[in-house]
Simulated scan of single mutants.
Amino acid sequence: MNATTAPALSVLDLVPVRTGQSSAQAMTASLALISLADRLGFRRYWFAEHHNMPAVAASAPPVMVAAAAARTSRIRVGSGGVMLPNHAPLVVAEQFAALEALAPGRIDLGIGRAPGSDPVISALLRSSGPTADVERFPAHVQDILALMRREGATVRLATGETYDVRATPAADAAPTVWLLGSSDYSARLAAELGLPYVFAHHFAGAGVQEALRLYREGYQPSEAFPEPRTFLTLNAVVADTQDEADARALPQLRSMARLRSGRPMGPLETVEQAQAAPSDTLSAQLIDDMRARWLIATPDVAAAELAAFAARYGADEVMLVPVAGSRDGEPLDATPGRERTLELLAG
């Protein structure tokens, strides 16, 4: 890829779990993947938050971020994102202030508004009472920003007295806060607060142009970010041949088709299981629609498509979701297809 047109590359990891694989093995594979991304020069590596999904082990981003920071030396690590309706703002601020102290200058706090699961799990996550009501999302984002500052925040008590609160007692710096979204709402809020913005293209390709336009045109400069800053996520499978890329993409495509059609979910199939499984008209149509929005290619084609993708949306960075499936017989504590995707894209 031409260095003048190549976007910076980052990684979003959902910690996929395949058939016969334990959560421990899936996490081991992801931690090996971030070590590789660090060596290859990727800009940042984020962990998602999802709950009660058989094929996804990324339910606790701060835990994975801490483990990843301890195994790397250069790459930025963070959440993509913490789903704020599930958490008290002070807890989020304390966790990420602590992470910043452990890995100074390398922590990103990506914040999302969605629950990351279904209504039953959302209710369980809030069983001790409402923590971050969706309607109060803008205020809670601002609370987190204030709590992580060196001077902290001031709370006014019912008595009229004030009370100082800090996420950590002696902060040198704060993590970089990003707003994540796939709608006009998050784009407008990020613009209003002067925060960088990430559009979740990997699961919501529609509406990206309008969201970015609203963000850039409505942007209110902040001290930390005088100019708007954004990037997009993109599902990616890159292999040495097109046939191999297509084969490695099939397990995740089939899993997403089940999710979008409301069918029961399970661990990710292996490539061979996915190829042997019967198809149907609905799944085939969903897979075709998704395939058109994903990056499934050989290295040269992928490089050209990435450059065009970044140019189309005016982004200098693309966050890849490496979704290459595994083959029968490959180690359960490794993820060769995802590793190869990063190696080929790094050149």
Rank of each mutant, 00 (worst) to 15 (best):
T5I: 08
A6N: 15
P7G: 07
L14V: 08
V15W: 10
I34H: 00
S35H: 12
R43K: 13
R44N: 10
H50K: 08
H50V: 04
N52T: 13
P54R: 06
V56P: 01
V56D: 03
A58K: 12
A58Q: 14
A60P: 03
A60S: 15
M64Y: 12
V65G: 06
A67R: 15
A68C: 11
S73F: 02
S79P: 02
S79L: 02
G80N: 08
P85G: 09
H87C: 11
Q95Y: 01
A98V: 03
A98W: 04
R106Y: 07
I107C: 01
D108C: 02
G110T: 13
G110C: 06
G112M: 02
P115V: 09
P119F: 10
V120A: 12
I121L: 11
L124S: 14
L125A: 15
R126N: 15
R126D: 14
D133H: 04
V134D: 00
R136H: 15
I144T: 07
L145F: 01
A146S: 10
L147G: 06
L147M: 11
A158F: 05
E161A: 10
T162P: 01
V165S: 07
T168P: 00
T168N: 01
T168I: 11
T176D: 04
L180H: 10
G181R: 10
L189A: 06
V198H: 12
F203C: 07
A204C: 13
A204S: 15
A211T: 09
Y215I: 01
R216M: 00
R216A: 00
Y219Q: 00
E223L: 12
R229C: 08
F231D: 01
L232R: 04
A236N: 03
D246V: 14
A247S: 13
A249C: 11
R254F: 00
A257T: 09
R258C: 02
L259E: 08
R260G: 06
A276G: 04
D288M: 03
M290E: 03
M290P: 01
R291I: 02
A292T: 15
R293H: 06
L295V: 09
A297S: 11
A302C: 04
L306I: 12
L306M: 12
A307H: 07
A308D: 15
A310M: 13
A311E: 14
D316Q: 14
D316M: 09
E317K: 15
E317V: 13
L320Q: 10
L320Y: 12
V321W: 05
P322D: 11
G325V: 03
R327E: 08
D328K: 06
D328N: 14
L332H: 09
R338L: 11
R340C: 01
T341K: 04
